[in-house]
Design a protein around this nucleic acid. Sequence first.
DNA 1: AGAGTTGTTGTCGATTCGACTTGAACCGTG
DNA 2: CACGGTTCAAGTCGAATCGACAACAACTCT
Lengths: 250, 250
Amino acid sequence: MVTKSDNSQAPEGYDPSQFPAFAVTVDVVILTMAAGALHMLLVRRGEAPFKGMWAIPGGFKRPNETLHEAARRELAEETGVDVPTLLTQFGAYGDPKRDPRMNVVTVAYLAVLREVGAIAAGTDAADALLVPVADVLRGKVELAFDHLQIVRDAVDRVRVELEVTGIATAFVGPTFTLAELRAVYEATWGIELDAANFRRSVVAEDGWVIPTGRRTQPGPSGGRPAELYRAGRAWKNGGPIHRVKATERK
Amino acid sequence: MVTKSDNSQAPEGYDPSQFPAFAVTVDVVILTMAAGALHMLLVRRGEAPFKGMWAIPGGFKRPNETLHEAARRELAEETGVDVPTLLTQFGAYGDPKRDPRMNVVTVAYLAVLREVGAIAAGTDAADALLVPVADVLRGKVELAFDHLQIVRDAVDRVRVELEVTGIATAFVGPTFTLAELRAVYEATWGIELDAANFRRSVVAEDGWVIPTGRRTQPGPSGGRPAELYRAGRAWKNGGPIHRVKATERK
DNA sequence: AGAGTTGTTGTCGATTCGACTTGAACCGTG
DNA sequence: CACGGTTCAAGTCGAATCGACAACAACTCT
């Protein structure tokens, strides 16, 4: 039985060592949009077990920080990004056999970043990888521990979060076009949305996106310049954009 | 301070004590319908800290069980009910100050039961209490630790779960009328739904509820006997019943 | 100038939604 | 056994929404 080493903050007569002790880690699934597809950040493990294999960034929770603070610290250490646009806890994993070394309970967080360039600035480039989430889910990248399951749960979570809350704006920059915002939904849900109807629904949701009055300069292929918006307050429960079941456009 | 880089990894000469150790507990928010309102189970704490105060049932995770198994065990110990209709993990709480004794990380589960009678069969009646959730949220019952926040999160979760998945059937018995099912939505969301429109939406969702052909015997106040249904397969993502924003009927 | 591309606005039919009404099936009581 | 009272099922109807597509606007490139 694992015993705790020392914890002298217990009151009189109380012996914490009679309870099983666990190591607690925090893992962060870092999502971003790149090349029109959902990507995630992986780091190469430098130590056993699973040495050399790809894994979700994470580390041990320290005794004097909250779980959220630990997740934020791990994210900052790995990407250099502090205060991300979104950092949500979505699961805890405690299978006794999930870590061959010892009994580790991990709490998983979901981070959404918008600046791809800043990612992987903290670590060596050879040890960080921005990979399409679809590749990971398809098993093209083998992950350490039970991290594949964690990624699956993270993707499931972001998909419903997209519909229930207004986190889509977390994927895009401080100002964005509605086409960019629509691409977030399309890439995450794997469907196509009508641009005209999407626009109508988005601007109808009062206060979610705010027009800035400015426009983009069009790309090299031309086209009418798009209006620029910035994120307003996000809604909770029942947003305007709904996931359709199987409406595949012709 | 423990860092990731300083652990010399030899699989045999591994020393777990160099990592901060935590106690890990599992707390279960047990929800059920009673008297047309959402109720939850509380237990009275027999030990310090917060001795004598009401709390969510829970306990320490054992080293050789998963988190889900621990939640199931705690639920069975407290209510006598094994294999509940629903047991979902919804959050982890790890504030260093959440337990004055020691550093405890707790993983919170949400259980939905349908048989109210079986609840609190495991413990002394004086030490278990089935209380309306609204009373807890309103602060009428003071809870130990950060359990009030946990209950808030549980209720938030069950509200969106009701809309996104088909868990409403977990609240009702093996066979049920549509009025009972509608009462689950109404009590959880605090709104009223039109009975006729509700019926249409429910039966339109293919395979969710299955008519049994039988009927209830009406209550003492008479009324047409309602058809009995049993739960079919639950849907994922985009159910038929949607939470309306502010449609208060006259 | 004209073709191509992209974003915005308009239109229209189909479907859904909310509110209400009607009818069906059962209970009491007299 | 007729008669309200009650509860559930089914019908109606106008309004709102949705999906698909057309039309128009604004830009780039050749």
